[in-house]
Design a protein around this nucleic acid. Sequence first.
DNA 1: GCTACATTATGAACCGTTTCAGGGCGGAGG
DNA 2: CCTCCGCCCTGAAACGGTTCATAATGTAGC
Lengths: 342, 342
Amino acid sequence: MTQPAAHRRASIADVARAAGVSVGTVSNVLNRPERVLPGTRERVEAAIDELSFVRNGSARQLRAGTITTVGAIVLDIANPFFTDLARGIEERLDRDDFTLMVASSDDDPDREQRYLRLFEEHGVQGVMVVPATDDIEHLLAVRRRGTGVVLLDRPSSDPSISSVAVDDVRGGELAARHLLDEGHTRIAFLNGPHTIRQCADRYEGVVKELVTAGLDPATALVEVTVPSLNADGGEAAIRGLLERGDRPTAVFCVNDLVALGVLRTLRTEDIAVPAEVAVVGYDDVTFAAELSTPLTSVRQPTHELGARAADLLLNGPDATAEHVMFQPTLVVRASSTPTPPK
Amino acid sequence: MTQPAAHRRASIADVARAAGVSVGTVSNVLNRPERVLPGTRERVEAAIDELSFVRNGSARQLRAGTITTVGAIVLDIANPFFTDLARGIEERLDRDDFTLMVASSDDDPDREQRYLRLFEEHGVQGVMVVPATDDIEHLLAVRRRGTGVVLLDRPSSDPSISSVAVDDVRGGELAARHLLDEGHTRIAFLNGPHTIRQCADRYEGVVKELVTAGLDPATALVEVTVPSLNADGGEAAIRGLLERGDRPTAVFCVNDLVALGVLRTLRTEDIAVPAEVAVVGYDDVTFAAELSTPLTSVRQPTHELGARAADLLLNGPDATAEHVMFQPTLVVRASSTPTPPK
DNA sequence: GCTACATTATGAACCGTTTCAGGGCGGAGG
DNA sequence: CCTCCGCCCTGAAACGGTTCATAATGTAGC
């Protein structure tokens, strides 16, 4: 076994030497085998095996310029909504033999930047981002430099950047409308920071609907910012609310994970749902219907969202930007009404 | 604005020209700013902004040889177990300023290979893999070529590859033991393909425990292979079982997503859980305790699993391989016993 | 004024591919 | 026998950074 020194990977030149051919020929075996005489090809292939040669992707890409990879940056990879989204993206990408790399920004603009840079420096075809802040200047910059950008789950405020979103104002309205219909006049909204557009929009929808119903948001609505957009965050928020003694009769949660934490806590505290407190979630994740109290939730076409985003990205950077907006629907279950539809 | 042609990104040479310095100086500004006179540095930085220059990661890496990124390949990114794992990895990685890229193999060995190659070609520091097959020859090859490899959620059959796993045989035993204790003598196991080691191990554990109890696995156990390891797969499998008319009194599911599908179906079919059919899941995902029938499940220390794996990988490729084995525990809830512990 | 040394900037070599103009050679056609 | 053509292969340029030996300049010490 004439392995090259353990610390250095074999290069195309090593292979060429071992096979007694030129580097150009090795490259041809790798990329256009039909142009190489079968005998030569076999010698080269033998050398490749012998040296366990692996192409250096960096060099390859440096020369070629581009790769068939796209990146996605989501807020929280542990949230089923975002992973469903990723699945939608992957499936579309597969059709064109593209690969997807997923990273999680954790609502942190710095992390978002870091991953964005990483993706851009490595020359991905494009990147899909659920932005952690309202400011998308940095994304515009990436776009200007020639990397495709699609905003995920968030309408674009800039015409040059494509976006695929669900109408979050409408989602807020649907939830609020439903709770008002059920007779609630004091609603808590366990929301994320307004720097996240989706949170701001849903809030806007809720307020809008309250006003339409003739209520004063200042008294009818209590907004609580959850420390983290997951079950533990939901638990912390609802506990804070209960301790303050001003228990609302309805809680609207910015996502189903938060709602899960709320349901868990209410059960521990022996507070009946929906009799004492009604709960509405957002995203309608897989398990929403199967919870101890089936959860009313705003459903988004998650899969289509991802697929459509991938579609736009693959259309190439020269295609005119498109802004796709899906509509959410409300799925009513037992957590918000004593008489759930069957 | 003297932008370079729209189709070509600015290179270090462009920046050098614009700033009236040499390429070496630009590189120094980028990497060792303290060695450059402030005045010069500012000129270079101005040129960088002006041309909106972004380093070419491929070129950088080609020269440097390595990057602070690690890859992870899991079976299903939509499964909370794997995303929790990813979170554990990320947190550990963050401490050393490494970044993580996640890809989903979908139980498909070809996809696993593809992503593995992608990661290797791009010179990641290492890669953590939940292998889709029992054969890990291809991983050994990667390891030999100098890229770190850690087996995730799966004990290593090779001493040279580190692994971090949970004792799946024991997990199977725990579940079976519990069901036997509850008086069941006819158990269905909705399992994944045995090519996935975890599935084979859990099966082994179940069989072992049945034998210990003096039962004949051939009659006491019905193994059903689910078409996909998620809720829909669980639904399909349980429906097949019900249609065949030989309803078992207990169902053990290879993961909680499958169990979710089973619970959903049983509820639709008005079959009482656990009275008519007991259900046990695996992974103890966040929502397991909050389901309409709280789910008994085998719990794994998911987070630690990921963190420990990252740990091993960061120890460098020269560290001797370690094989970490965690123990699972059984969390008993209402889905498997008429008298759940409170 | 001269040497010694520190500070800063230079430019060429190098990393490992892909690509492409061109060379050698054998066979077909005249 | 000569020319032309195709086929296979070669070798060098190019991609865009980093690094390093070296040059240029300024400063201190004697």
